[in-house]
Amino acid sequence: MTDGDRFPATQHSIVAALGGDDPAAAEKAWDTLVRGYWRPVYVYLRHRWNLPHDDAQDLTQEFFGRAHARGFFDRFDAGQARFRTFLRVCLDRFVLKEREAVGRLKRGGGSFHLSLDFVGADREYVAALPDPAADPELLFRREWVRALFAAVVDALRARAEAAGKTVPFELFRLYDLEGSDAPLRPTYEALAHQFGIPVTQVTNHLSAMRRAFRREVLALLKAQTGSEDEYRSEMRELFGESVS
């Protein structure tokens, strides 16, 4: 598995697929779950448990390895909690047990190894250190949303490149992604001039990209939640009441 992989197009819940009878579907679901949660887990370990990079990396690997081997998430009951909350509670318990068992287990020595960009995650964490007083749960949630959005952006880029229609994505990247960090967001007129297209086309391309973004975010959100109620609840929390 690599970071560049695309998420599955299916909208079936990966949470349900994890404990399902179809091994191939379970593996695919696991893959999606890890890609959606490894960064939130890593950042949470750094912040909530105040772990240095190496320990946070090892524990992230170990947590997912153990969860995979022992079927942690198979026990999830959608009627009891959100999957996101369930995973975080699992993580807290895992860390506590690890601390008790320190010395008995050689971390990172298991057979499960994830090819993930921990170096990049460390660099970004250090570059934008969260307030020490920040609520770990909120931070975990924010990282989860970030991972959700990033997965969708990667998918949209891959799709644009595969179709050879990169202008809409480039506009989206320049205006909605990089433009958010620029001192001054580029104007539609400037983008139109840059790409040699009318302003209305910039408006329409951006509208289409945002619609695609929204559609894919909601699809992935649906896949990462355990029930219809949880999906709707997360959706409202993320985007407000107007989304349906």
Binding site: D3, G4, D117, G120, E124, A128, R142, V145, R146, A147, F149, A150, A151, V153, D154, R157, D176, L177, E178, G179, S180, D181, R210, F213, R214, V217, L238, F239, G240, S242, V243
Partner: peptide
């Protein structure tokens, strides 16, 4: 994987769901 900044995150939450 693309890194989404805090500012971009907030912006996307807003614009992707603008009528």
């Amino acid at each position: 994987m693309t890194r989404i900044s805090d500012a971009a995150l907030t912006h996307l939450q807003s614009v992707a769901f603008t009528d």
